[in-house]
Write a protein that binds this DNA or RNA. Sequence first.
DNA 1: ACCTGAACACCGTTCAAGT
DNA 2: ACCTGAACACCGTTCAAGT
Lengths: 208, 208
Amino acid sequence: MAFDILRSDGLDGLTMRTLAAKLGVAVTAIYWHVGDKQALLDELVDRIIAEVGEVRVTGGSPADRLLSIGRSLRQNLLDQPNLVALVHRQGRTPVLFLPAQRVVAEELTNAGLHGADAARAVHAFLRLVIGSVILERTEQRSPDQRETVEELWARERLSLHSTLAEHLARPVDRDELFEFSLSALVRALVTQPAPPWPASSAQSYNAT
Amino acid sequence: MAFDILRSDGLDGLTMRTLAAKLGVAVTAIYWHVGDKQALLDELVDRIIAEVGEVRVTGGSPADRLLSIGRSLRQNLLDQPNLVALVHRQGRTPVLFLPAQRVVAEELTNAGLHGADAARAVHAFLRLVIGSVILERTEQRSPDQRETVEELWARERLSLHSTLAEHLARPVDRDELFEFSLSALVRALVTQPAPPWPASSAQSYNAT
DNA sequence: ACCTGAACACCGTTCAAGT
DNA sequence: ACCTGAACACCGTTCAAGT
């Protein structure tokens, strides 16, 4: 019931009083059953995670299967913006990682990764997917000052390659961008020869 | 003044009444000067963007310079969690992209990218940085149910390579993970072998 | 055990009224 | 032009009181 209100009206529409009204009960009855609002939202978050976290896996190669996991998870989250918003507002975003972790880990193991490398890959993968969704969600909700961006890049055309400025002034194709970033990461993860990453980057990391 | 309250006490600590009290003035006086709270927060967001958006660039090669931009931007945002939280809560997260866009575009141009490819690279780069920060911010704020993750992976050890399960049960080194993801993306973006001292990219300001 | 009503402290906001 | 005080509608929450 609280779930329905949240899904349709968002977190702002879900108050103890509106919920009580929809239940045909006094406001204070909720406190006896659930506890305070924090407890109510915690229960909701747990249900959301279970509902929205399951992913479908398709494809033959490990790389393809990883991409399908990323797409599936992203679509689940984008389909329920109000639910994802609540999870994030409650500071529970990390739990969004949990349901898909196992299946991602499995695919990466199949791709030949093990130990710390595989764990890092799991985290990098899920972080990219969920971070993308959270940004996209706020972009959708705010058409924002698109004219400001265009203004900005109209003035920039002298100092930069003009076609780049033109493209930056245009709206983003989020699907394509997600596909691009995720593909780049997956390609970096499942290429067999271990890149000389830890040693070389430890230098540049301490450089600043 | 509202800025100081926000920085120290977060958005929850910034009410019209606490602000008025700190200003030594009646609550309603704020409405005459600023308008309603939405207008107040909008002004704050604009100031935050200006303050937190500037990045420092170091390094010789385009790839190194891109990495330094990413690190610098990330650190700025992580240093002011309450400010970033407000920007996000206001749905203005996209504006976090603006200040760094120009300098990232410049470096990618120097790296030999143009037009749509360069624009996509700009967006992918900034999205990874800002998405990472937003996730890290909520992770920091909630130690969460770390025991749940360990439980989960304790049970998983049979079906997966055991060292992977062990590593996944451990907390994440966020600095290392960010470095890993960003490096992978940058490597995917700047396809060229990138000699340590490219004479060509030194000439970045020649006329078009 | 389960629910109600009154009450409290806190919001953002409006508006007539003061200077 | 600038500020105040009272008032309103809305929160979450507590608690004694009902059945």
